[in-house]
Amino acid sequence: MSERAPLLKSQRSLDHELVNQGHMACPGCGAVLAMRYVLNVLGPKTIVVLPACCWSVISGRHPASALNVPLFHTAFETAAAVATGVRGALDARGDSETHVLAWAGDGGTFDIGLQALSGAAERNEDIIYVCYDNEAYMNTGVQRSSSTPPGAWTTTTPAAQPEDRDKKDIMGIMAAHRIPYAATAAIAYPDDLMAKVKKARDTRGMRFLHIFCPCPTGWRTPPDMTVELARAAVQARVFPLYEVENGETWSLTLEPEGRPIADYIRAQGRFAHVDDQTIAQYQSATDRRWDQLMKRMAQGC
């Protein structure tokens, strides 16, 4: 995991940054990179709807703001609902140009916000919904969510009784709503990520992006490992990069090497208690999920 990232096309966008310096994220936060890449594609004509999540704090304390776009803080479970209203009002005012970006964490998406998200997806609301996934309730101090992977320590899944359920298949759920566009992305692959944001930007209707964002604070990893961990997750097929159009066309956007997941697991303090035998089980489970994904790629839906 020591390879150097190639020069990024995304670096060209630095002259019109929409994420300011001086934000309030922890050092090495993956979610800040994700916001930066997404906003740099969507541009200044974007309204952000932000439910309770790490970004509620990252965005800064009143009257400062870390974003150069309008931002509305809202209740935990209402990202998709409030975005529905913002879109409706823009439409009523004849503004079809401005993008509405609902920006929620995994807790606000997989758990408490799932009903509103499902409603918006079913109605095919013309919004872009991003779930930045750091695999637990990090803002409240690392509690498990239904996105927390098996074996992970959190403050509510202590090492003596770690998380024992698979991550909820949020992409499967969103694909089942037959929305025009859904994709996974990871902050280690900004060109792939930004290409997907562009595709989302140029599609109308409900768009869903599931962005993998390692969290040094919650994962018990050094802050300078964040990008490499995201890359390791993708290459180990833990977090494959793909897109789904209309719930039917599934396509891989990056062929992972299929590295053993042991390297990915061993690099993180949250898995420190996990033994080799258990890692072997996780490897089997990862392989099984990958095979299922490949079947979907081949068959559609």
Partner: peptide, 8 residues
């Protein structure tokens, strides 16, 4: 652009 409801 303004932020509404930021922490205070």
């Amino acid at each position: 652009p303004r932020a509404f409801g930021s922490i205070t």
